[in-house]
């Protein structure tokens, strides 16, 4: 099997309070069919064998649906492939001899926990502020009892595809969380189930987003470009309409 040699520069940081730095590693046994995270697993096996601390990084499903994987790869969150989470990125997109710089997502509300792992619970607090609907407890409602036009359902589904990874924040020159928050507001604002809390939701989620210390949106649209689920900035526009409507009437 063809083997690749890669030069890695990886952010190592002991804990939240210790300053970190980029550390260089060279790997000689990478194969093109490995995923990016498998490549890091190989590195960690070598490190453990040498008695060194393995590189910490977040991951869970490794199939692009949970939003746990992160990493800024050569300056781009989730790496160079469009609409691809880091766990779905494969080493065939890199060349033998490449140098790859791997950094954690950077934003004040996403503090580094260790190495490449950041704490994204700011997103949970934004969701808790309004990203829910109220339903009566008891038996599940009948399916299809509320008709929803296909285009509306599609649009809501596009927004609901957001896996909450936070790459939009990492890519934003302002570290704004607008794409994530707009996906959540948009998804529920479009559906009948989301109507009772519609105004409150927009106001509270945006208020919480600002309180967490994320930056403002300058419409660079870099978020849409790195989003593994291709969430469109059209949702940011809808979020703004929702907020202004909630304010004015």
């Amino acid at each position: 099997m063809k083997k690749m040699t890669l030069h890695l520069r990886i952010w190592r940081q002991k804990d939240a309070n210790t300053p970190g730095k980029l550390v260089s590693y060279t790997l000689n046994d990478v194969t093109p069919e490995m995923s990016f995270l498998e490549m890091l697993d190989v590195l960690n096996e070598h490190l453990v064998a040498k008695g060194e601390e393995p590189v910490e990084f977040d991951n869970d499903c490794r199939e692009g649906i949970c939003g746990m994987c992160s990493l800024v790869i050569n300056g781009i969150p989730h790496g160079p492939e469009h609409a691809t989470a880091t766990c779905q990125l494969h080493m065939r997109h890199f060349k033998d001899g490449d140098t790859i710089t791997i950094e954690p997502f950077r934003a004040k509300p996403f503090p580094v926990v260790k190495d490449l792992v950041v704490d994204r619970s700011a997103f949970d607090r934004i969701l808790a502020a309004g990203g829910y609907i109220s339903v009566n407890a008891g038996s599940a409602p009948d399916a299809n009892s509320i008709p929803i036009p296909k285009e509306v359902a599609d649009e809501a589904m596009d927004a609901a595809a957001c896996i909450g990874c936070g790459a939009c924040v990492a890519a934003c020159p302002n570290a704004s969380a607008s794409l994530f928050v707009s996906a959540k507001i948009s998804q529920l604002a479009l559906l009948p189930q989301g109507q009772p809390e519609r105004k409150r939701r927009a106001l509270r989620m945006i208020e919480q987003m600002d309180r967490e210390g994320f930056g403002d949106c300058s419409n660079h649209a870099e978020c849409e470009a790195v989003c593994p689920k291709e969430i469109s900035i059209a949702h940011i526009a809808r979020m703004r309409r929702e907020y202004m409507k909630a304010m004015l009437c």
Partner: peptide, 19 residues
Amino acid sequence: QARPVGYHVQGNAGGPSKK
């Protein structure tokens, strides 16, 4: 304030980006 520690390497993801 929102990004006190920056990136060593900065990229542009292209595609729909308007950066």
